[in-house]
Amino acid sequence: MTPYQTLQQQTAEQRQWLLDTPVIRRALAGDIDRATYQAFLTQAYHHVKYTVPLMMACGAHLPERLEWLRGALVEYIEEEYGHQAWILDDIRALGGDAEAVAAGRPAPATELMVSYVRDVIEHGNPIGFFGMVQVLEGTSTAIATQAAEKMRDGAGLPADAFRYLESHGALDIGHLAFFEEQINRIESAQDLQAVIDTANMVYRLYGAMFRTLGQAADDAHTSEVLADALV
C-alpha cells in the first residue's frame, strides 16, 4: 500500500462524517438558499485567507531532509495566492457586504481549524500541514463544481457568484494529483502519521464548520429583517 493509499484508508471515517453533513447533501441537490451559501462563503474567506500564510510557515519550519517538499510548497503558494479575493467578489455578487465579512470574525470551528494547523506547524511536525491540504483539496474535488452547478440552477443564485467554487473544483483535480505524488515520497512513518492525524482533526473541524452554517444563515436573515425594520 502506498503512503497516499494509507492516508486515504486511515482518514476514510472522518472524511465520510464530513461528506454526510446535511448542508453538503443539500448543496449537492441544489437545495441551498442565498443566506446559507453566503454563510459558507463567509467561513471560506476566513480560512482561505490563511492558506498562503500557513504554507509559508510550513515551508519555514520544514527540516532540511524535507527540502523537496519545500519546493512543492513554492508551487502551491503561486497557485493559491489571492483566492480569498475571489470569495469576496462572490459575496458581492450575492448582494452581501464583503467588507463586513472581511472585518468580521469566523465561527469557532473555522477559527479552531486554522489555529490547530498553525500549532501543528509551529509546535509539532510541520509536515502535518498537508493533512489540511488533504481535506480542503479533496473535498473541493469531490463536491465543488457539482455543488456550484446544482445551487446555481436549483436555487436560482447569480451565475457570477460561483467563481471560487467553480475554479476550485477543476483546479483542485490537478492539485490533488500533485499532492498524491508528494505524499508518496514520504519515507518516515512518523511524518505520514502527522499528516494522517492532522487530516482527521481537520475533517472534524471542517465538518463542524459546515454544521454551523444553518444557524449562521438564520442569524444573517434575522439581522437583515431588523435592519429593514429600522429603515
Rank of each mutant, 00 (worst) to 15 (best):
G174R: 12
E67K: 12
T198P: 01
I127S: 06
T51G: 05
L157C: 05
Q14I: 13
R152Y: 08
M55C: 08
R65C: 09
L28N: 09
I32R: 04
F40Y: 15
R26M: 01
P53E: 06
I173V: 14
V202F: 03
E78Y: 10
T141Q: 06
A72D: 10
R211T: 04
F130Y: 13
A229N: 08
P3K: 04
L73A: 01
T198Y: 03
M1P: 10
G128V: 09
M151G: 05
D89Q: 14
W68V: 10
M201I: 10
D172K: 04
V202E: 01
M55L: 14
A199Q: 03
G30N: 07
A98G: 03
H47N: 11
N184K: 00
T145E: 13
P22Q: 05
M56R: 15
T212P: 09
E80S: 01
L54V: 04
V101F: 07
H47G: 07
I173M: 12
M209L: 08
K49S: 10
D172N: 02
R92K: 14
A189D: 11
D97S: 11
P3A: 07
I91P: 02
Y76E: 14
D197K: 03
H47V: 09
A189K: 06
P63S: 12
L94V: 01
R70I: 06
S167T: 15
M209R: 03
E180P: 07
M56D: 12
L19T: 03
Q9K: 13
Q38L: 07
E181H: 15
H123Y: 14
G82Y: 02
L19M: 13
M113G: 05
T222V: 12
A159C: 09
Q193K: 07
F162I: 07
P53M: 08
D90L: 02
V52D: 11
R204A: 13
A199Y: 01
D153N: 15
E79K: 02
A148C: 05
M132F: 00
D172G: 02
A155S: 01
P53G: 08
F178L: 10
E187G: 14
Q9M: 12
Q10N: 14
V120M: 13
A142V: 13
V114L: 06
G124M: 11
Q14Y: 15
V133C: 08
I121E: 09
D191C: 04
L192C: 06
G95D: 02
L28E: 10
P53V: 07
F129K: 00
T2A: 02
E137H: 04
E67G: 13
F210R: 00
P108G: 11
V120A: 10
G154P: 04
L18K: 00
A93T: 01
D228I: 13
V117H: 02
I173W: 08
H83D: 06
R92S: 14
M113H: 03
A199W: 00
H46Q: 11
G154A: 06
Y206N: 03
A93Y: 05
V23Y: 00
G156E: 05
A109M: 12
Q16F: 09
A102Q: 11
V202L: 05
E224L: 13
G174S: 10
K49R: 15
L28C: 11
A29W: 09
L165Q: 09
H175L: 08
R211G: 00
Q14L: 15
